[in-house]
Design a protein around this nucleic acid. Structure first.
Lengths: 244, 244
DNA sequence: TGCGTTTAAATTGTCAGACATTTAAATGTA
DNA sequence: TACATTTAAATGTCTGACAATTTAAACGCA
């Protein structure tokens, strides 16, 4: 394993970075056991708490997992899809909420990415993903639904659309774009009329996918984008007026 | 702040998760100072090292930053684009390298996402992004270039293509897809003939963007995808044969 | 008064040593 | 052999201490 250079940042950050590079470069392979905390402390010439802080940093990124007991220790972790989803969604959500990203920019990115899925989704959609989409459409038509529940259902619908492409890498990449929009969408008040309009677009998308018509799905998606954009702009305009 | 329920996982993980939720929910706002480690230890009824491990977990995700000295402490961090890029690329690269993702699936996802950018890129490309693309094309034509350098240049070219869309959220999302492919591409040996072919596709893409022709760019991109796929399949076939 | 210097306080970073807890292998026993 | 017990190794946690760093306040001097 590498050694730390002179001095700069925290020791625990340096050690974590050194181990992370080993993993990324493939020199530490999957399920391989790292030296014990005591051995690492000895190797890097630091105390055990410092090593532990470094290992916790790696654990937070799902790079390692730890097990107690004899023959326990820290092991290079196989990054699972659920873990990767979680990381990506956390990062994306924070990036959008903390950097004053305009609704327009986020919306444009999300729908551009979703349109990338529609050709594949139209070709590969399954009865299963279609059923999910239909179920969410039905839920979105229920009168008593709160705005927040409506948004959550919207996310589920769009994730089913993405999953229809049957490409797990694509689903992973899109999860961030779709989920991160939810806080922004939650600022919108959905009137009965706007809900009806959205349900209409969703139905058109589901129908098009069912008939394997990629172009029709893409067209409906684009119209939904334009409509969502107007909803978002209304909210932003109202907010700007209220702030004066 | 929330309290931990009965018992289950590590205390440091529980505490980190509690604080993370506060941040994600916006109850801890940007640049806000968290209580000192001693106060947190008191609040959660744990020792200071345990609190520190929790804070290091959050720091590893760029959720907080720490400063020493009086009036120092842990502060909610504004997640910057470079930090988000780094997180996303790390996660994406590991996900692909550790889960036996087929070259085909990764390739399909990447090019589907890139095609989502071309309409915007064709409309908004700047002299700057075009110049970057031209420079990389020129580099890719140099005879002495190693395969690894060729790959790195390829990544730079495609990132310039993505950046041409002038949507930072899109650039962020695509960074993972483009960069994570590099280790897979590095397995390919680029002959003089395949390099020439790729440079040809790149030139067609740059030309199309320069003339604001989205369809032509998309067509060239699709052909490049098909060509990349054959290169990847040749490598995989050779590997499979060598393994017998 | 005004300004530079010194001091003090608060906070994170690091260390040392200890004990608790968990796990699986080794051992002992019926 | 089968099962219970012991043991060893490792992580999880705690206590207490000191070092390093940074800012604010106190101080001294012209």
């Amino acid at each position: 394993m590498k050694i730390d250079p002179d001095n700069k940042a925290d020791l625990s950050a340096q050690i974590a970075e050194a181990i992370r590079k080993e993993i990324m470069a493939g020199r530490l392979i999957i399920d391989e056991r790292l030296p014990s905390e005591a051995e690492l402390a000895d190797h890097f010439a630091v105390s055990r708490p410092t090593v532990r802080e470094a290992l916790k940093r790696l654990a937070a990124q799902s790079l390692i997992r730890t097990a107690r007991g004899a023959f326990g220790g820290a092991f290079v972790n196989r990054l699972s899809y659920p873990e990767a989803y979680g990381q990506h969604i956390t990062t994306s959500t924070l990036l959008l909420s903390m950097n004053a990203i305009s609704f327009d920019v986020a919306c444009e990115a999300r729908y551009a990415l979703e349109r990338a899925c529609t050709p594949l989704a139209a070709a590969r959609r399954t009865p299963d993903t279609l059923a999910t989409m239909r179920a969410e459409i039905h839920r979105q038509g229920q009168p008593g639904l709160t705005d927040e529940s409506f948004c959550a259902s919207d996310v589920t619908f769009h994730r089913a659309l993405v999953d229809s492409a049957a490409n797990p890498v694509l689903s992973y990449q899109l999860a961030g774009a779709v989920e991160a929009m939810q806080p922004l969408m939650n600022m919108i008040t959905f009137t009965a009329r706007s809900r009806e309009a959205i349900v209409g677009f969703h139905t058109r998308i589901a129908d098009a996918l069912e008939r394997h018509e990629a172009d029709a799905a893409q067209a409906a998606l684009s119209e939904l984008e334009a409509y969502t954009l107007t909803l978002g702009r209304d909210v932003m305009a109202a907010r700007a007026k209220a702030a004066t």
